[in-house]
Simulated scan of single mutants.
Amino acid sequence: METIHIACDHAGLELKETLKAALEARGFSTCDHGTNSRESCDYPQYAHALCAAVEAENGRGILICGTGIGMSIAANRHAGIRAALCTTELHARFTRLHNDANVLCLGARVTGVELALAIMHVFLDTAFEGGRHQRRIDQLNPQPAR
């Protein structure tokens, strides 16, 4: 059973709980990295905790904040993370097919619950195509100057 890591800030708490229930209903295990409160908090700490776990396990994760932008920026600071802010099912499909994204970012204030669920399901159900796309992924992290 695959474990899906999930985390949010205060704005994403309700959506996180909804997505966790849907993941568990589909047979996924979840690892919740917080927050578990509606009190204002700093999203980077939750993004970094989730990303460290995803990198360590070569796993997948879901980050949620108000718009998804902050979580996306924080997550993409990690060399082993390819986080994608998705607002449509098409984004979710192609970020997996072509970018092999391992972290889905969602905005709880801008994406409705039903759409967020649909995006999550597409993200989880779509496999990476590989081939020419792998070559491009290999070029994402800058190479040291010679």
Rank of each mutant, 00 (worst) to 15 (best):
P44D: 12
H33K: 02
L50C: 12
C8N: 09
R93G: 00
E89R: 02
C86M: 02
L85K: 04
R26F: 02
F28K: 03
E129R: 15
L104V: 12
D42G: 09
N58S: 15
Y43P: 06
T88H: 10
C8Q: 05
L23P: 05
A22D: 13
M71L: 05
L13C: 11
L50W: 07
H91L: 03
A101L: 01
A83N: 07
G131I: 03
F28N: 05
A84N: 00
A47G: 09
R82M: 07
A108Q: 03
H48C: 10
R26W: 05
E24Y: 06
L15W: 01
H10W: 12
F128Y: 09
E89A: 02
G12A: 06
E129H: 15
R96G: 01
V113N: 15
K16M: 14
I119R: 05
V54N: 07
G27V: 13
A25Y: 04
E24L: 14
L85W: 00
G112C: 13
H121P: 01
H48E: 09
Y43V: 05
R26Y: 02
R93W: 07
A7I: 04
L106F: 14
A56L: 11
H48N: 13
S37D: 11
G130K: 13
H91P: 02
T95V: 11
I69N: 02
H10K: 09
H91F: 08
Q45M: 06
A56V: 08
H33Q: 11
N36W: 03
E14P: 07
K16C: 15
L15I: 03
F128W: 03
M1K: 13
G61W: 06
F128H: 12
I4W: 01
C86N: 04
A47K: 04
S29W: 15
C51L: 03
H78F: 10
G130R: 14
N36E: 08
E114W: 09
V54Q: 04
A47M: 05
H48A: 10
F128P: 06
R60V: 11
G34E: 06
A56I: 06
T3C: 05
A21N: 09
L13P: 09
I69R: 00
R109H: 14
H48L: 10
R38M: 09
I73R: 00
Q45E: 07
H48K: 10
D32F: 05
H121D: 15
T111M: 12
G68Q: 01
E24S: 08
I73V: 10
A92Q: 03
G27H: 09
S29K: 15
I6F: 02
H98Y: 08
D100W: 03
A75R: 02
I4P: 01
L104M: 03
T18A: 13
F123C: 11
C31S: 10
